[in-house]
């Protein structure tokens, strides 16, 4: 038995599993998005009405636009925060690197709902921050309770570990001696970062952005509990199609639109990375990958 045969035999179980239970379901909702639903039943009646509904009712597009703005802001905040943190852990963490990294990831495994509950306890109208403020005679901070600000804080709380992890893994393979070279040749810390560190870790950074952007764009639970009455995002409207209204075909079409929006974001981020490479912000003379 050749090694190629052995390779495919070993990856076969997982591959078949993922094709059947991940890819086929995704293809299925693309198909169903062209059907229609009648009294909680899918009917095979090919049409484009679901997409017409999404793109003609400004409500759907408004929720999508809101989600896009939210996802962009959350990704940028995570990016700005995760970089120095990951950099510090890799550069100065030494033998404590692993524990420092895992400590940023541990809350992720407690699940979305309990983390949202914990945040409601801090940010909500009877959360500890506003309770403390009123106790000591200050006005409560409106922005903290049931607002987009609260949702944004919640989403950063949930997904920041992904960004830290992606940049951390990228920096692990970065040769910090290059920074000494930059320093010797006269670059200040900022210039060394912009021209050496960042370009050489652009792929990891791009992966981090996408890993935060995609789930944030689709978020439903966080905005449901922290966003308040006007805080609904695209994910909330999507979830509704599979709950009380039972309009599965429309929901499938919304899912497809969400998937395409995520894919578009992925392409844009990837293009930006490519542009970074072409723009010449690389060490001069270094072979281009």
């Amino acid at each position: 038995m050749s090694n190629t045969v052995r390779f495919w035999l070993m990856v076969l179980p997982g591959t078949v599993f993922l094709v059947v239970f991940l890819l086929l379901p995704l293809i299925a909702i693309v198909v169903f998005s062209f059907w229609r639903t009648e009294s909680y039943t899918l009917i095979q009646d090919w049409n484009l009405d679901n997409y017409a509904t999404i793109f003609s009712h400004s409500a759907y597009l408004t929720f999508l636009a809101r989600a896009l703005v939210m996802a962009t802001c959350v990704s940028l905040v995570c990016l700005a925060y995760a970089w120095p943190v990951a950099y510090f852990i890799v550069r100065y963490g030494g033998r404590y690197r692993l524990i420092l990294l895992l400590s940023t990831a541990a809350p992720f495994l407690t699940g979305e709902i309990l983390r949202v509950a914990a945040l409601q306890q801090i940010l909500g109208p009877i959360g500890v921050v506003n309770m403390a403020l009123t106790r000591f005679g200050f006005d409560p901070i409106e922005a903290l309770m049931y607002s987009n600000m609260a949702t944004g804080t919640g989403l950063v709380y949930l997904w920041l570990p992904f960004m830290v992890l992606a940049i951390y893994l990228s920096l692990l393979n970065f040769d910090f001696a290059l920074l000494d070279v930059a320093k010797i040749t006269g670059a200040g810390p900022l210039r060394a970062f912009v021209e050496v560190t960042l370009p050489l870790n652009r792929a990891g950074t791009a992966i981090g952005i996408v890993l935060v952007f995609i789930p944030t764009l689709a978020s439903a639970t966080t905005s449901q509990f922290l966003g308040g009455p006007d805080g609904a995002l695209y994910g909330n409207i999507l979830a509704r199609q599979f709950g009380s209204t039972g309009t599965w075909a429309l929901g499938s079409a919304m899912g497809v639109v969400l998937f395409l929006a995520s894919a578009l974001a992925l392409v844009i981020v990837w293009r930006a990375v490519g542009d970074l490479r072409r723009s010449g912000i690389v060490i001069k003379g270094a072979p281009k990958p």
């Binding site: 995609i214 994910g235 998937f259």
Partner: peptide, 9 residues
């Protein structure tokens, strides 16, 4: 790279 809610629905 796929939102959990999409895997769910």
């Amino acid at each position: 790279f796929i939102a959990p809610i999409l895997i769910g629905i």
